[in-house]
């Protein structure tokens, strides 16, 4: 691999910047989204733990709540 591969006849700066920017934006969005998701899941579990036993058992009857709790325990 020679230096010209990186320089690309003078176009390297534009090409590499484009790819770098694209993947940086994508990585930023991914990390930000993952952080929010993890935090929300954690907060949700904490809030359900603060519920009374009756409230919690009522809540667990909802299938979607079960799914959220199961998915969090898997992580």
């Amino acid at each position: 691999m020679n230096l010209n591969f990186f320089l690309m006849d003078g176009h390297g700066i534009y090409v590499w910047s484009s790819f770098l920017l694209t993947f940086s934006v994508c990585l930023f969005l991914f990390l930000k989204t993952r952080k929010i998701l993890k935090k929300l899941e954690k907060d949700f579990i904490e809030e359900t733990e603060n519920l009374s036993k009756e409230q919690f058992s009522d809540l667990k009857k909802q299938k979607i709540i079960k799914e959220i709790l199961v998915s969090q325990s898997k992580n």
Binding site: F30, D43, F44, L59, I64, I65, S71
Partner: peptide, 23 residues
């Protein structure tokens, strides 16, 4: 698709979290 699914889960949990506060 990856971001969409993660965002969809975020929005769903947000809705359910609001429901928890009403209990």
């Amino acid at each position: 698709a990856l971001i969409f699914l993660m965002k969809y889960r975020i929005e769903t949990i947000r809705v359910k979290k609001k429901g928890l506060k009403k209990l």
